[in-house]
Design a protein around this nucleic acid. Structure first.
Lengths: 202, 202
DNA sequence: CTGTAAACTTTACAATGTCAAGCAATGAGG
DNA sequence: CCTCATTGCTTGACATTGTAAAGTTTACAG
């Protein structure tokens, strides 16, 4: 309460150059440049210019660091979906297609990060910041589904269908498991496999 | 060419107890009992009763062993889909729903194995047996989609949609990423999110 | 100046995948 | 029967990785 008690025990921010953020940044760069196999705790530390034991003072070990990286990933993920959506025409269907194209773009441009974000065995799912970021990205997609009638009695069935559809398409595409025997054309666009969705008011 | 040249250099089968198959079995059991984190080369070897270096004589290192396990996984996968399909009524839609329920059942009952099978960074995707098994399981799903009209000009768009839809639902479900904020009911059934699919002959 | 707490380093260790060398058994050729 | 080469596996070693303990540095309150 005293005016200038900067209170060193208080975590007033990181001391020098915000190592916590630098470690996450290092992880994102490694994922981007060398893929998920290259993402090790020691590599992140080296890239951030600290010893290999430094991350343990800011994260709960390797799972904690990975969770922080995934959390940042979900923020970039939501931003990508929003960006593509806002360039699309203002009709509900075009906005939804924009969200899905943003989903695909993020997955294809950030393969390692995307894989990380949806791999339960790597992240600490109960982490609060992680959950918040993941749910926020879900909310972006849910919002784009809101104008449409549910496809069944199930509440939120449209969101579940779209979320499953685009996530499956993205996962299979980046995993190279989307077999297309006779044709050798590029991955299909979401508009080619999106079923008709009747609007709510209509 | 001589009648009884059993030709010991020929790989006439495994010598003692078919160690190759035993190692794959050990891997499947470990996945089933202790999850994907417990799947190590040394653990498989120990479970099969051999030294930790034995697998290298039958597989191309750890990726090779994992690929063999995933290959067996795809066979079980196809068998599960077929089994559930054949218990369903004979209408095209019921058969397709059966395939999808088999897909979900396999994913939920073999979480670690399912994750393995679709993780490109673990398997050797160019392996011939692996590709054959993966494509065979795809063919089972494609067959169930065949009676329906394509959802777009894209050839095989129905298969792609169904494959994406069910794979996304399965992946998100086992990853615990299928957020259902207001309701706290179990995972949705495929029939609740499967859109209307007009038949071909119509 | 003293002491304390946070940030970070150094050191050590267990687990893992991989490789090289060696050993044992099996069966062919003399 | 003897030799010997090949296959199947073991032993031992090594680099990499995550983690924990102990030590060091730095900043700052009193």
């Amino acid at each position: 309460m005293t005016q200038d008690t900067k209170a060193h025990p208080a975590p007033k921010a990181q001391n020098r150059g915000d190592l916590k953020a630098r470690l996450v940044k290092a992880g994102l760069d490694i994922l981007d440049e060398d893929g998920i196999e290259a993402l090790t705790l020691r590599a992140c530390a080296a890239r951030a210019g600290v010893s290999h034991a430094a991350p343990a003072h800011h994260f709960d070990g390797m799972p904690g660091l990975v969770t922080a990286i995934a959390t940042e990933g979900y923020r970039l993920f939501a931003a990508t979906m929003i960006e593509v959506r806002d360039r699309a025409p203002a009709t509900p269907r075009d906005r939804l297609i924009g969200i899905c194209r943003g989903y695909m773009r993020f997955a294809e441009e950030n393969t390692g990060l995307f894989t990380l974000m949806f791999n339960t065995s790597l992240t600490i799912d109960r982490d609060a910041a992680f959950q918040a970021a993941a749910r926020a990205s879900y909310a972006v997609l849910a919002e784009a589904c809101a104008p449409f009638r549910p496809v069944s009695q199930e509440p939120r069935s449209t969101e579940t269908m779209i979320w499953s559809l685009i996530h499956g398409l993205a996962s299979l595409t980046i995993a190279g498991r989307l077999f297309r025997p006779d044709v050798d054309l590029p991955s299909p666009d979401i508009a080619d496999i999106l079923p008709d969705l009747p609007l709510k008011a209509g």
